[in-house]
Amino acid sequence: MDTVAASQPAFRFADLEDRPVLVTGGGSGIGAAFTEAFARQGARVAFLDIAREPSLALVATLSGQTRHPVEFIEADLSDVSQIRSAVAAAAERLGGIGVLVNNAALDDRHEFLEVTEEYWDRNQAINLKQMFFCAQAAAPHLIADGRGAVVNLSSISFLLNMGGLPSYTTAKAGILGLTKSLAGRLGPDGIRVNALLPGMIVTERQKALWLTDEGIAAMIDRQCVKRSLTAADMVGPCLFLASSASAGMSAQWITVDGGTL
Protein backbone atom coordinates (compact mmCIF):
# COMPACT_ATOMS: atom_id res chain seq x y z
CA MET A 1 0.00 0.00 0.00
CA ASP A 2 1.42 3.40 -1.02
CA THR A 3 0.22 6.30 1.09
CA VAL A 4 1.31 9.90 1.48
CA ALA A 5 4.96 10.02 2.44
CA ALA A 6 4.36 12.71 5.01
CA SER A 7 1.04 11.54 6.42
CA GLN A 8 -0.17 14.99 7.39
CA PRO A 9 0.66 17.69 4.82
CA ALA A 10 1.83 21.00 6.23
CA PHE A 11 -0.78 22.87 4.18
CA ARG A 12 -4.46 23.05 5.04
CA PHE A 13 -7.51 23.93 2.96
CA ALA A 14 -10.09 24.81 5.60
CA ASP A 15 -13.05 24.69 3.20
CA LEU A 16 -12.43 20.98 2.57
CA GLU A 17 -13.40 20.13 6.13
CA ASP A 18 -16.64 18.12 6.10
CA ARG A 19 -16.78 18.21 2.28
CA PRO A 20 -18.08 14.96 0.70
CA VAL A 21 -15.28 13.66 -1.52
CA LEU A 22 -15.28 10.62 -3.80
CA VAL A 23 -11.96 9.21 -5.08
CA THR A 24 -11.84 6.51 -7.74
CA GLY A 25 -9.02 3.98 -7.56
CA GLY A 26 -8.41 5.26 -4.05
CA GLY A 27 -7.05 2.12 -2.43
CA SER A 28 -3.40 2.19 -3.51
CA GLY A 29 -0.73 4.30 -5.19
CA ILE A 30 -1.58 7.91 -5.96
CA GLY A 31 -5.24 7.23 -5.23
CA ALA A 32 -4.45 6.12 -1.67
CA ALA A 33 -2.45 9.31 -1.21
CA PHE A 34 -5.52 11.31 -2.25
CA THR A 35 -7.84 9.31 0.00
CA GLU A 36 -5.58 9.84 3.00
CA ALA A 37 -4.93 13.50 2.28
CA PHE A 38 -8.59 14.47 1.94
CA ALA A 39 -9.43 12.50 5.08
CA ARG A 40 -6.69 14.30 7.00
CA GLN A 41 -8.11 17.62 5.79
CA GLY A 42 -11.29 16.66 7.65
CA ALA A 43 -13.32 15.76 4.55
CA ARG A 44 -15.90 12.99 4.43
CA VAL A 45 -14.22 10.57 2.04
CA ALA A 46 -15.36 7.51 0.12
CA PHE A 47 -13.26 5.70 -2.44
CA LEU A 48 -13.96 3.13 -5.13
CA ASP A 49 -11.54 0.33 -5.92
CA ILE A 50 -11.56 -3.19 -7.33
CA ALA A 51 -8.70 -4.37 -5.08
CA ARG A 52 -10.24 -5.40 -1.77
CA GLU A 53 -7.24 -6.25 0.41
CA PRO A 54 -5.18 -3.05 0.02
CA SER A 55 -8.37 -0.99 0.29
CA LEU A 56 -9.37 -2.59 3.58
CA ALA A 57 -5.80 -2.16 4.82
CA LEU A 58 -5.95 1.56 4.03
CA VAL A 59 -9.26 1.94 5.88
CA ALA A 60 -7.78 0.12 8.86
CA THR A 61 -4.66 2.29 8.82
CA LEU A 62 -6.70 5.50 8.88
CA SER A 63 -9.29 4.26 11.38
CA GLY A 64 -9.57 6.61 14.33
CA GLN A 65 -7.04 9.07 12.86
CA THR A 66 -9.37 11.28 10.85
CA ARG A 67 -12.37 13.47 11.53
CA HIS A 68 -14.68 11.09 9.64
CA PRO A 69 -14.35 7.35 8.92
CA VAL A 70 -13.15 6.58 5.40
CA GLU A 71 -15.65 4.58 3.33
CA PHE A 72 -14.51 1.88 0.90
CA ILE A 73 -16.88 0.73 -1.86
CA GLU A 74 -15.72 -2.19 -3.98
CA ALA A 75 -16.43 -1.78 -7.70
CA ASP A 76 -15.15 -2.78 -11.12
CA LEU A 77 -15.19 0.55 -12.93
CA SER A 78 -15.06 -1.10 -16.35
CA ASP A 79 -18.71 -2.03 -15.69
CA VAL A 80 -20.99 0.99 -16.05
CA SER A 81 -23.74 -0.57 -13.96
CA GLN A 82 -21.26 -1.01 -11.10
CA ILE A 83 -20.14 2.60 -11.51
CA ARG A 84 -23.69 3.84 -11.13
CA SER A 85 -24.39 1.67 -8.10
CA ALA A 86 -21.10 2.56 -6.42
CA VAL A 87 -21.46 6.31 -6.95
CA ALA A 88 -25.02 6.18 -5.61
CA ALA A 89 -23.79 4.25 -2.56
CA ALA A 90 -21.03 6.79 -1.99
CA ALA A 91 -23.47 9.69 -2.18
CA GLU A 92 -25.75 7.97 0.31
CA ARG A 93 -22.94 7.29 2.79
CA LEU A 94 -21.43 10.77 2.47
CA GLY A 95 -24.67 12.74 2.31
CA GLY A 96 -23.87 13.90 -1.22
CA ILE A 97 -20.80 14.42 -3.40
CA GLY A 98 -19.02 17.74 -3.57
CA VAL A 99 -15.70 16.64 -5.07
CA LEU A 100 -14.97 13.84 -7.53
CA VAL A 101 -11.36 12.79 -8.07
CA ASN A 102 -11.27 10.63 -11.20
CA ASN A 103 -8.01 8.85 -10.46
CA ALA A 104 -8.53 5.16 -11.38
CA ALA A 105 -6.29 3.88 -14.18
CA LEU A 106 -4.19 0.93 -15.32
CA ASP A 107 -0.80 1.73 -16.84
CA ASP A 108 0.25 -1.77 -17.90
CA ARG A 109 2.77 -1.87 -20.72
CA HIS A 110 1.62 -3.42 -24.00
CA GLU A 111 3.25 -4.05 -27.37
CA PHE A 112 1.61 -2.18 -30.26
CA LEU A 113 1.78 -5.10 -32.72
CA GLU A 114 0.25 -7.51 -30.20
CA VAL A 115 -2.72 -5.44 -29.01
CA THR A 116 -6.04 -7.17 -29.74
CA GLU A 117 -9.43 -5.55 -30.10
CA GLU A 118 -10.45 -7.07 -26.78
CA TYR A 119 -7.37 -5.69 -25.01
CA TRP A 120 -7.91 -2.24 -26.51
CA ASP A 121 -11.56 -2.09 -25.47
CA ARG A 122 -10.77 -3.30 -21.94
CA ASN A 123 -7.91 -0.82 -21.57
CA GLN A 124 -10.02 2.09 -22.79
CA ALA A 125 -12.86 1.04 -20.48
CA ILE A 126 -10.52 1.22 -17.51
CA ASN A 127 -8.58 4.34 -18.47
CA LEU A 128 -11.07 6.62 -20.22
CA LYS A 129 -14.65 5.33 -20.48
CA GLN A 130 -15.08 4.97 -16.72
CA MET A 131 -14.07 8.61 -16.15
CA PHE A 132 -16.95 9.79 -18.30
CA PHE A 133 -19.48 7.56 -16.56
CA CYS A 134 -18.19 8.33 -13.06
CA ALA A 135 -18.61 12.02 -13.83
CA GLN A 136 -22.06 11.41 -15.31
CA ALA A 137 -23.18 9.43 -12.26
CA ALA A 138 -21.77 12.00 -9.85
CA ALA A 139 -23.07 15.06 -11.73
CA PRO A 140 -26.54 15.29 -10.10
CA HIS A 141 -24.90 15.20 -6.67
CA LEU A 142 -22.25 17.75 -7.66
CA ILE A 143 -24.97 20.04 -9.03
CA ALA A 144 -27.01 19.69 -5.85
CA ASP A 145 -23.88 20.54 -3.86
CA GLY A 146 -23.77 23.91 -5.61
CA ARG A 147 -19.98 24.25 -5.79
CA GLY A 148 -18.81 20.92 -7.09
CA ALA A 149 -15.32 20.18 -8.38
CA VAL A 150 -14.00 17.37 -10.58
CA VAL A 151 -10.29 16.56 -10.80
CA ASN A 152 -9.32 14.19 -13.64
CA LEU A 153 -5.96 12.41 -13.63
CA SER A 154 -4.21 12.45 -16.99
CA SER A 155 -0.45 11.98 -17.55
CA ILE A 156 2.47 13.52 -19.41
CA SER A 157 3.10 10.11 -21.01
CA PHE A 158 1.23 10.99 -24.20
CA LEU A 159 3.56 13.97 -24.70
CA LEU A 160 6.75 11.90 -24.50
CA ASN A 161 6.35 9.71 -27.62
CA MET A 162 6.39 6.60 -25.42
CA GLY A 163 5.94 3.52 -27.61
CA GLY A 164 5.29 0.93 -24.93
CA LEU A 165 1.74 1.74 -23.88
CA PRO A 166 -0.20 3.18 -26.84
CA SER A 167 -3.73 2.49 -25.56
CA TYR A 168 -2.95 4.05 -22.19
CA THR A 169 -1.41 7.18 -23.70
CA THR A 170 -4.36 7.54 -26.07
CA ALA A 171 -6.71 7.46 -23.09
CA LYS A 172 -4.62 9.97 -21.16
CA ALA A 173 -4.73 12.39 -24.10
CA GLY A 174 -8.49 11.86 -24.34
CA ILE A 175 -8.92 12.79 -20.68
CA LEU A 176 -7.89 16.35 -21.50
CA GLY A 177 -10.58 16.53 -24.18
CA LEU A 178 -13.09 15.12 -21.70
CA THR A 179 -12.00 17.67 -19.10
CA LYS A 180 -12.55 20.58 -21.46
CA SER A 181 -15.93 19.30 -22.62
CA LEU A 182 -17.22 18.58 -19.11
CA ALA A 183 -16.02 21.98 -17.93
CA GLY A 184 -18.07 23.63 -20.66
CA ARG A 185 -21.16 21.55 -19.98
CA LEU A 186 -21.12 21.64 -16.18
CA GLY A 187 -19.79 25.13 -15.58
CA PRO A 188 -23.26 26.73 -15.73
CA ASP A 189 -24.29 24.31 -12.97
CA GLY A 190 -21.53 25.59 -10.70
CA ILE A 191 -19.14 22.67 -11.28
CA ARG A 192 -15.46 23.19 -12.07
CA VAL A 193 -13.57 20.50 -14.00
CA ASN A 194 -9.77 20.46 -14.16
CA ALA A 195 -7.02 17.90 -14.70
CA LEU A 196 -3.66 16.90 -13.27
CA LEU A 197 -0.82 15.60 -15.43
CA PRO A 198 1.69 13.66 -13.33
CA GLY A 199 5.17 12.96 -14.57
CA MET A 200 7.00 9.82 -13.47
CA ILE A 201 5.54 9.17 -10.03
CA VAL A 202 7.52 6.37 -8.40
CA THR A 203 5.21 3.88 -6.67
CA GLU A 204 5.89 0.45 -5.23
CA ARG A 205 3.85 -1.16 -8.03
CA GLN A 206 5.90 0.49 -10.74
CA LYS A 207 9.19 -0.41 -9.06
CA ALA A 208 8.04 -4.01 -8.80
CA LEU A 209 6.86 -4.27 -12.41
CA TRP A 210 9.04 -2.12 -14.68
CA LEU A 211 10.92 0.80 -13.12
CA THR A 212 14.65 0.19 -12.76
CA ASP A 213 17.23 2.25 -10.91
CA GLU A 214 18.66 3.22 -14.29
CA GLY A 215 15.27 4.32 -15.61
CA ILE A 216 14.56 6.40 -12.52
CA ALA A 217 17.99 8.03 -12.76
CA ALA A 218 17.42 8.85 -16.43
CA MET A 219 14.13 10.58 -15.67
CA ILE A 220 15.63 12.53 -12.76
CA ASP A 221 18.37 13.68 -15.12
CA ARG A 222 15.68 14.97 -17.49
CA GLN A 223 13.75 16.73 -14.69
CA CYS A 224 14.57 20.20 -13.35
CA VAL A 225 13.82 18.93 -9.83
CA LYS A 226 16.57 16.40 -9.15
CA ARG A 227 14.76 13.77 -7.11
CA SER A 228 12.17 11.06 -7.59
CA LEU A 229 8.57 12.26 -7.52
CA THR A 230 6.18 10.32 -5.29
CA ALA A 231 2.45 10.22 -4.70
CA ALA A 232 2.90 12.88 -2.02
CA ASP A 233 3.87 15.37 -4.74
CA MET A 234 0.40 15.05 -6.29
CA VAL A 235 -1.49 15.78 -3.08
CA GLY A 236 -1.12 19.56 -2.87
CA PRO A 237 -2.16 20.21 -6.48
CA CYS A 238 -5.18 17.91 -6.12
CA LEU A 239 -6.34 19.55 -2.87
CA PHE A 240 -5.88 22.95 -4.51
CA LEU A 241 -8.06 22.07 -7.50
CA ALA A 242 -10.73 20.59 -5.20
CA SER A 243 -10.82 23.60 -2.89
CA SER A 244 -12.09 27.16 -3.13
CA ALA A 245 -8.47 28.30 -3.58
CA SER A 246 -8.99 27.47 -7.28
CA ALA A 247 -12.55 28.83 -7.46
CA GLY A 248 -11.84 30.72 -10.69
CA MET A 249 -10.24 27.79 -12.49
CA SER A 250 -11.98 25.41 -14.86
CA ALA A 251 -11.08 23.60 -18.11
CA GLN A 252 -7.41 23.81 -17.10
CA TRP A 253 -4.67 21.37 -16.21
CA ILE A 254 -1.67 21.40 -13.91
CA THR A 255 1.47 19.49 -14.82
CA VAL A 256 3.40 17.97 -11.92
CA ASP A 257 6.47 16.45 -13.52
CA GLY A 258 9.46 18.03 -11.79
CA GLY A 259 10.04 20.15 -14.89
CA THR A 260 10.38 17.27 -17.35
CA LEU A 261 8.49 19.19 -20.02
Rank of each mutant, 00 (worst) to 15 (best):
L113W: 10
G98R: 02
V80D: 10
A88V: 01
D49N: 14
L94V: 03
F72A: 05
A51M: 15
T66V: 07
D121V: 13
E118G: 01
D76G: 11
I126N: 05
E92A: 13
Q65K: 15
L100K: 02
D79P: 04
S63Q: 12
R122M: 04
T116W: 03
I97K: 00
D107E: 13
G98M: 02
A57D: 12
R44E: 06
A43N: 07
Q130D: 08
R67T: 05
F72C: 03
D121N: 13
Y119M: 08
I97H: 00
A43D: 09
H110R: 05
A75Y: 05
N103M: 02
P54G: 12
E53P: 11
E111R: 15
I83S: 06
T116G: 04
L100A: 03
R67H: 06
V115I: 15
A125Y: 00
V70I: 08
R93T: 14
L94Y: 01
W120Y: 14
D49P: 06
I83T: 11
V115G: 02
A51S: 15
A88E: 07
V99P: 01
E118R: 14
A46F: 05
L106A: 13
A88P: 00
E53N: 14
V87M: 09
A57K: 13
V59Q: 11
F47N: 06
G64M: 07
S55D: 09
A91L: 01
E53S: 15
W120C: 12
L113Q: 13
E118K: 12
S63N: 09
I97M: 00
L94M: 00
E118S: 12
L48C: 06
N103D: 03
E71K: 10
V115W: 02
V101T: 04
D76S: 14
A51H: 15
E92L: 03
I50W: 08
E71W: 06
R84Q: 15
S55F: 06
E53M: 14
E118F: 01
S63T: 12
S85M: 07
A75D: 04
R44S: 06
H110P: 00
A86R: 04
R93K: 15
L58G: 09
E71A: 13
L48N: 04
L100F: 03
T61F: 09
E53D: 15
T116P: 03
N127R: 08
D108I: 11
V45S: 02
G64Q: 08
E111C: 09
A86Y: 02
